[in-house]
Each structure stands twice: as structure tokens, then as C-alpha cells.
Design a protein around this nucleic acid. Structure first.
Lengths: 342, 342
DNA sequence: CTGAAAGCGCTAACAC
DNA sequence: GTGTTAGCGCTTTCAG
């Protein structure tokens, strides 16, 4: 039962632990003969280095932390997958934590990760995060941190984002190009940057195409749920202005709206066109299938890890963080809820 | 920059590290006065114990490993969430790994986790796992392991499962009760126990209700994808026997089949009724909404962690593993793709 | 009540 | 080529 340690191997071979350690690490100053013997015995005894001892010595855990607002979520689960896959390839393991969009939870989890001495942290800010001291202090104390998706411009560190403004611009333009001229926007809550950016993109697209912006065509929701989309579509139907296009903040809202419109025998895309955002799986199987904006979560996760790895290396070398910002390109996925553009 | 250690606190206070350590741990043999002083300084210097040193001493990491076949997956992501939430409540962190249904990957990841000295491992077997030595050896070596969802009866350890056989029985019965008598089954690949169990449940339900089992009504698929469901529905339509009910192995298959049937103007549920399995989110938003079997992933994840925790405690106390098996109840969710039963 | 000392298992600088 | 030594930071006897 007693664990196999370097010491044990050393004793059995009449060597010192130092020699055994070096032999296993293939140091050049150990004779081939010794290396052979050491390796053979290590193999035989099924030796495994004790990771705690290694970490203690080397001051690195080869574990990183990942904080995500949600796990059961098409976009975020793709990010998680991207991070975990990329990390594993580079010899890192990932501790995942779910903030549930709570500021307090986010703070607590950051502490948990720091207490575990993870080598770095990836975090997407919760919608309720109003203050960034918990992050900036962490960075100041030397923990590499990379923000992904929901970021704050006030934090100086590497980031991976999509250009929400541009993506929303193109989504809106897609509706305009296909002939819509009274375009509603179902937006999210005021706080997160993504909501603001998508709203701005929407406005800009209207302006650039000579369509007057109208406050009454913007519907705000807080839950980003199917039900919310459904409800709001009810308002859209009743709206005195005859709306012929909808750009929804997210696919779930769009799907809910779609459902309501269908119930009301409104022809889609001919009477009203709809475009969502995120390219969730569900958008491909509604009928009609939802046009949307693809937001490549997996890629985003990979890139986020790569940035973090770079920063971890920088720290090791005593170099400063790069604070590099990677923008992941998005893409319009035209399906059957919008008409072909010209 | 130098990290705050016990030693540093001890020096500043003219105490020994032993005393400081005990004071912080509130040992009864330290004077209140000393405790007060130590705590105050620790607070002031923002002392954080070094987790590597602690782990090395205490031989525990308070980290567990979780291997899942997939991450972007309604059911499994719910399990992950359940595990992570439960673990966090008990002071454990979770390293998640994705086997991607590969036996080799699964083996490698088990090794990674063991090398990191995690306190225990939760694993759902990949569909391609044909040999269980990698698991049994781990258990023999003393690592607490709990299997969830995709298990093997040949491994003796705690498990959390759903009663697939029973669930499938009830799903099939639901179709029978609503008047179907030529019921097709879209099943998964041969290997995993879940496929076999659901198939058995289907057969048993037919038998118990005087419906003859017919080989030709069983369609096998390997991908469990929307497309596969779509393809197979094509075969179902062409089938010489007039099928009036479909029990699909999973919601995705059912949704694909639904789509094909609708394209062919087949009335659902009147001409053909469909029931899926898992209660994925998507099943609630198809039209008609899919009847299905709810498989509570979140609960499953929680229970899996609880069992693991018990086993970790058992190991600490030198007691043997319980090998307890928890069966999570499932529930039929009747929606609009089946008729109301009698 | 407090401290000295040993040691968890590993690594690296420096001798020999 | 190999060994000695000195820790990494913490916990826990066991003395005093």
C-alpha cells in the first residue's frame, strides 16, 4: 500500500533520490545504464510522481479555473468544451465553476480558485457584476486572467470577444436587404455590454440604410427565455406600426416569437421575417428554420485558453501580460425565417 | 511579492510556525490572546494557506474528477451542473473532462486524473468501452469511483442510474394506452446498456399488452442525430406495415422523425404518435411539442457526487466502499405528439 | 500554553 | 556521473 516514491526506488537501487529524479527526467548527466535501471524499476513498481510535491516545488499546478455564467446553455457549453479540449492538449486540466449570473457567487468562486492556486483563470462576467475590484486585484496579485464573451473594458487583461455590434449590424442589414423596413428589436437587459453593443449595431444599420429609428420598436426583456419571446411577439402583433422584421437578441427569444406568430397565422418570412442570434442548435430545427448569427463558442473557448497559456508563460518568464484582444468573427446563417436578400 | 507564509507571520509575531498554524485552526491549547494576534496579522497580510503544501501533508486535494462523454448535450450538461453545484457546496472543486465516447481517451483521462491525485472520480462509460480494467484497477488501487448513467454491471462500485427499462416500458405503454397498436422503435447502437434496456422495456410493454413484437418495426441508428431520425422516418413511412406510433431512443431522433412526418403531411398525433426520451429542451418547442420521458440530469449529478463523497469519507475512515446503487425516477411528459391516454 | 523537530515527496544548486 | 543538502509550506507529535 505504501506509495511508490523516489526514495523507495533510490533505496532499492542503492542510488540517491536526486539521481533517480534526474534519470526519470532524462537529464544528460546521468549514465544510460543508470537511466535504464531506474526506468525499469519505476515501471515495475508503477511509480507515479506525487503531484502535490511537484506543485509545491515548482509552484505550478497545471490546473486552470473556468467561471461561466451557465453550463446548460448551447453557447457557453461550447465554450467550455473548447477550453477543456485545448487545455488538455497542452497538459492542463480545467476546474469549471458556474456563477449563475450572480456577482456574489462570482466573487466567492474566484476566491476558491485562487485558494487552490490554479495557474490562471478564464472568466465571463455575470450580468450583475457591477464592480471589478475582485478581478483587478487578482490580476494585480499576479494571477493570469483572461476574460471571454462578457467582458468589461475597464479591466486591463487579455480578452476574447465577438464583435457584437458588427454582428448585430449585419443581422439587421440582412433584414433590410430582404426588404423589411419596420424592424423591431427584442433586446436584453440594460447591463451587459453585449446587449448594448447589439442594440447599437441595430441602430447603426437602420441609420446607414435611411430607416428612421423608432423607440417603440424596441422591446426589452430580462429573461432571454422562450416565454419572453412569445409574450413580446404578442405585443409586436398588436403594435400600431406594422412591423415586418424582428431582430432578436438571442435564438431562444426568436424561437418564442416565431411560435407566437405561427399561432396567429402570420406568414413567416413573408409577413414578418425573424432573425435570431447565436446559432443554437434549436434554431436549425424550428419550422421554419430560424435565420441567425453564428457565434463560434468552441473556437472562442480555444482562443481564450491560448491567450491564458501565453499569459501564464509570460508570467513565468517575468514578462508582463499582453492584454491582447482577440475578436472572433461571426457569420449570418440565412435560413427560412427570412427572405433571401438581394 | 514574497508570499505570506506561516513562517512570516510567526517571525513577525515572535512565535513558532506551529503555534501560528494551530492558532489559525483554532486549537484549544492556544491562548485566546495569541489567537487574536495571529488572526489579526493573518488578516492584515492577507494570508492564504498554500494548498499544495496542505495537500501534500494531508493527502487530499479536495478536487474530484468528472468524465463525461459529451459537454454540449442537454442531459449531460445538466449532470455536470448537478455535480459541480453539489461539490461546491461540500467544499470540493471539479475537473471536467470529455471522453467524446472514445475508449482510448477515457483511459488517458483516467490516468490524468489519477496523476493529479484527485480525491475521487465520477465517470460515465463511453459507448466504445469494451473492457473495464482501467476502472477496476483504479478502484483496486484505492481511488473512490462512482459510475453514473452509462455503467457496467461488471464493475463493483457505487452507481447512479435511471431505470431505462422501466422508463421505456412506460413510454411504450403511453403509446398503447393512447390507442397505438403498430409501434415502431428507433433504437441506438447495440453496445451501451441503455440501448439494450430501453429496447427490452419496449418489448416487455408490447408483450404485457398483447401486441406481438415484430422485428421489422425496430430501426437501428448509430448516430442518435436529428438527421438519423429524419432518415428513419422515411423508412417508417414506406413500411408495408402501417405504423401508428414511434418510440424513439432519444428526443433528437424523435424531433428528426417528427420533421419528416410533417413534411409528408402526416397528422401527428392522429396518424402517427411519437414519443421521445430525455426531455431535452428542444422537445418542448417543436410543433407539435414532443411527448417524452423526463430524465432528471441535475438530480443525477447531485446524487452521484453524494455517493462519491460518502465513498471518500469511507476511505478516510478505512471503511470499505458501499457499492450503493441509486435509481433516479423518470417521468412521462405527455405533450402534443401523442394523444391523451385513457 | 508554546516550540522544536520531523517529514509529506520532489527538485536543483553545488560538491565531489 | 552521482550524491549531499537544502528547502517548497504546512501539520503534527512530543517536550518543555
Amino acid at each position: 500500500m505504501a506509495n511508490v516514491t523516489l526514495k523507495r526506488i533510490a533505496e532499492q537501487l542503492g542510488l540517491s533520490t536526486a539521481t533517480v529524479s534526474k534519470a526519470l527526467k532524462n537529464y544528460s548527466d546521468i549514465s544510460d545504464e543508470t537511466k535504464r535501471k531506474v526506468r525499469a524499476l519505476a515501471e515495475e513498481l508503477n511509480y507515479k510522481p506525487n503531484s502535490f510535491a511537484q506543485s509545491l516545488r515548482n509552484r505550478e499546478s497545471r490546473i486552470i479555473g473556468l467561471i461561466t455564467p451557465e453550463i446548460v446553455h448551447h453557447f457557453f457549453s461550447n465554450i467550455i468544451k473548447g477550453v477543456i479540449d485545448a487545455a488538455e492538449k497542452s497538459g492542463y486540466l480545467v476546474i469549471t465553476l458556474r456563477s449563475g449570473e450572480s456577482y456574489e457567487t462570482e466573487k466567492r468562486q474566484l476566491r476558491l480558485l485562487r485558494d487552490k492556486n490554479v495557474d490562471g483563470i478564464l472568466i465571463s462576467l455575470s450580468d450583475k457584476t457591477i464592480n471589478y475590484n475582485h478581478i483587478t486585484e487578482l490580476i494585480k496579485d499576479g494571477t493570469p486572467v483572461v476574460l471571454y464573451d462578457k467582458i468589461s473594458k475597464l479591466i486591463n487583461c487579455p480578452k476574447v470577444i465577438i464583435n457584437d455590434r458588427m454582428a448585430a449590424y449585419h443581422a439587421t442589414k440582412h433584414l433590410i436587404d430582404s426588404g423589411c423596413c419596420a424592424i423591431a428589436h427584442i433586446r436584453g437587459p440594460l447591463r451587459p455590454q453585449t446587449t448594448i453593443d447589439r442594440f447599437m449595431g441595430y441602430k447603426k444599420a437602420l441609420a446607414d440604410h435611411g430607416i428612421e429609428f423608432c423607440e417603440d420598436l424596441v422591446f426589452e426583456t430580462s429573461h432571454l427565455s422562450f416565454e419572453d419571446g412569445y409574450e413580446i411577439a404578442g405585443e409586436i402583433i398588436k403594435c400600431p406600426i406594422k412591423i415586418d422584421g424582428i431582430f432578436a437578441f438571442t435564438d431562444l427569444l426568436a424561437a418564442g416569437a416565431l411560435h407566437k406568430l405561427k399561432e396567429n397565422q402570420i406568414a413567416i418570412p413573408d409577413e414578418i421575417s425573424i432573425i435570431g442570434f447565436s446559432n443554437w442548435f434549436l434554431s436549425s430545427i424550428t419550422s421554419p428554420a430560424l435565420s441567425t448569427v453564428d457565434q463560434p463558442g468552441y473556437l472562442m473557448g480555444q482562443k481564450a485558453f491560448e491567450l491564458l497559456l501565453k499569459d501564464i508563460e509570460n508570467k513565468k518568464q517575468g514578462r508582463p501580460s499582453t492584454a491582447e484582444i482577440i475578436e472572433i468573427p461571426t457569420q449570418i446563417i440565412p435560413r427560412d425565417s427570412t427572405r433571401p436578400g438581394r
